[in-house]
Design a protein around this nucleic acid. Sequence first.
DNA 1: GGTCGTTAATGAAAGCGTTCACAAGCCCGG
DNA 2: CCGGGCTTGTGAACGCTTTCATTAACGACC
Lengths: 213, 213
Amino acid sequence: MRWKKISDAVVRRLPLYLRVLEEVSRDEGRKLMSSQELGERAGVSPALVRKDLAWFGEFGKQGVGYEVSYLKDELRRILNLDRQIRVALIGVGSLGQALTRYNRNRVRQDDSFNIEIVALFDNDPEKFGMEVDGITIHPFSEFEEKTRALDVRMAIVTVPADQAQMVADAAVAAGIRAILNFAPVKLVVPEGVRVANADLSLELQRLAYYLDD
Amino acid sequence: MRWKKISDAVVRRLPLYLRVLEEVSRDEGRKLMSSQELGERAGVSPALVRKDLAWFGEFGKQGVGYEVSYLKDELRRILNLDRQIRVALIGVGSLGQALTRYNRNRVRQDDSFNIEIVALFDNDPEKFGMEVDGITIHPFSEFEEKTRALDVRMAIVTVPADQAQMVADAAVAAGIRAILNFAPVKLVVPEGVRVANADLSLELQRLAYYLDD
DNA sequence: GGTCGTTAATGAAAGCGTTCACAAGCCCGG
DNA sequence: CCGGGCTTGTGAACGCTTTCATTAACGACC
């Protein structure tokens, strides 16, 4: 990418801004928005909104604000959401199935949501050939073959903890560059591969801290 | 709690340390662990491990390290995990069901995992009285009544986006103090109520940023 | 019992991320 | 065509988080 060292904190807020812009343009059809209002809706200070966007260019007009549809398009471009992103899901248990349905529903309802689960994998022979929401479940051994054919570069990992690292290693070897990991383990991956953890237990335990009486 | 203003960043790492300690004491039965090793396994620098723990007391011995089982118990106490934490789940769609099964499985396999979903709520009359993993689904209108009876103070929200805020308001009114929110909206809650967001779409969009070629 | 290697605790320093504050630029009304 | 009110973009200040570096303490071994 042409922007070198953007911090994680900044990147994490971009989808938030994008969401606000999409809501506004869909529900209200408004043309302009100030950093003040964008910040309020995203739960961020106006100054931070401006600083975040400034990393990528000058998108606003002084005295006016940001043009909603233009900024939206720019953010989508920055986040690589201007082209379709194909995702593989590994581990089709009840969580994996739920996420698949959830994602497909989202894609169906919002045709600008360009991140789509297009392949499912599992190691249980009972599941081979079964479908979830129209997507066939393949043996994990075929992961590389199938994902390369479909140009998949992102994976969602919903396998048991003791298999997560092995699955991640194989996925990385097959060219996966970003992983959303639901397994309760810290995945070790090479430089250049991105992992986001969605660790339910950790979040619950963290919340418990604040439950003193 | 007797520790006043511990930062979120610190609290977020405590469950990580706890997990490492539990793995080690279960799998290896080791007695001692240094901040060096604890840090390595948790993905954190040794100095930071020591600083984090120092907020709550002096748990280690110089020249020796930390006693695994002692530190584990202390962390569990700090995180309020030394007593059972009862959770209500609102919105029993496929994601809600998956999370319920996932949680119950966890509780079944690890009897020290003290955070348990004990009540399910939905607004769909078709679901009233149905069970997921032995837990009955109740109308959301009975939320306050049921949760007060069970002393529930944490809730998981897996309802559609347009109902999330209303559900959160009602939950807070019923005494809920911590919410794990899966709906793609920024919940507004009063001071003193904690929200953790598990927003799948946001995470996927964030990961997409790193997928440039 | 003394020495040496190891490790926790901790104040100081460095590094980051956020907020502040202001100059520059835009629009509208007169 | 000019003035006033907004709003962006941005360097500087601030505050929070992490790392560094030192001190003090423990245990094993001779």
